[in-house]
């Protein structure tokens, strides 16, 4: 199949590199499984859904391990962030590609790249010191699902915007030129031609954004309130899986520690599930009626 030994060498090397990259997640999974095995062997799985509350610091018999509000909190906050960040990100990409003058586009892109590098602790600090008091004035306590969504949106926006931008840039130039030749406006070109053509890239961008939102820790700890309770409204505090790990790991021992690793495992399962769903959806779109 390959003409030269050099090509065979290249292919082999690349396969090796890819295999290592793929293997990392297996290692992580094995590590998390091993660390969470104590709680899996001593606490019935159903108790993670039916226990009265989340108080794992006591031993396996007395502790309470209800993860449901935490999982719901995680899903709500990250879904909210993606719902806001995806349109903002795609519109930003359209802005850069089709609307803004060259210089403005360049500066805006650079700004988004900067946004990508602001540490989550700085987002959290800003959220806690600036945003939370503002929201507390409208609806105490201020630390809430809403604040979390706002901060998370800002945090995942660069991922979504830059990847969307790359996906749109990837649409063959001929199509754009064709549109121009047909006399289509930039608006029509962007929304009716380019966005549908870049669909798979845009989906990737949204998924990576979602996954990033789910995995986010430090900022969420500071602005979400962290109470383990089913949120009744947008202004109720929520707890996420990652903040549970971050808040409790430093003093956790025995079953408690291991139940925190179980949180990590649940998180990985949630992520895997979402990716599977996204894949099914995009495949249906690919094969369905155009």
């Amino acid at each position: 199949m390959f003409r030269s030994t050099r090509d065979r060498f290249l292919s082999l090397t690349l396969h090796g590199l890819a295999a290592v990259s793929g293997l990392i997640v297996v290692l992580v999974l094995a590590f998390v499984l091993q660390e969470s095995s104590p709680v899996l062997s001593r606490v019935m799985l159903s108790r993670f859904l039916t226990d009265g509350s989340w108080h794992p610091a006591a031993d396996a018999a007395e502790g309470a391990f209800n993860l449901l509000p935490i999982v719901v909190g995680t899903l709500l906050s990250s879904a909210g962030a993606v719902v806001l960040a995806t349109p903002l990100g795609i519109l930003s990409a359209v802005f850069i590609q089709f609307y803004a003058p060259l210089h403005l586009a360049r500066w805006y892109r650079r700004m988004i790249e900067l946004l990508a590098g602001i540490p989550s602790v700085v987002f959290g600090l800003w959220g806690l010191v600036v945003l939370v008091p503002l929201i507390a004035r409208i609806h105490p306590p201020g630390q809430s699902l809403f604040t979390g969504i706002v901060i998370l949106t800002l945090m995942i926006l660069p991922t979504v915007a830059l990847l969307s931008n790359a996906a749109m840039a990837a649409v063959p130039r001929e199509i754009v030129s064709g549109c121009a030749a047909l006399g289509l406006s930039r608006r029509t070109t962007a929304f009716l031609i380019i966005i549908p053509a870049a669909k798979s890239g845009l989906t990737t961008a949204a998924i990576l954004g979602l996954v990033r939102a789910i995995g986010e820790t430090m900022a969420v700890v500071m602005v979400c309130g962290n109470v383990v309770r089913m949120p009744g409204s947008l202004f109720d505090p929520i707890r996420t899986l990652t903040s549970t790990i971050a808040l409790e790991m430093s003093y956790a021992r025995g079953v408690h520690r291991s139940s925190l690793f179980f949180c990590g495992l649940v998180l990985l399962l949630v992520v895997t599930g979402l990716i599977a769903v996204a894949e099914i959806v995009s495949r249906r779109q690919l094969h369905g009626p155009v």
Binding site: L128, V129, N226, V227
Partner: peptide
């Protein structure tokens, strides 16, 4: 609880902001 926090400074900042 209405807010659950971790480190001391987070507690101080939370109370100072509300």
């Amino acid at each position: 609880a209405d807010v659950v926090i971790g480190d001391n400074e987070q507690g101080v900042k939370t109370v100072a902001g509300n």
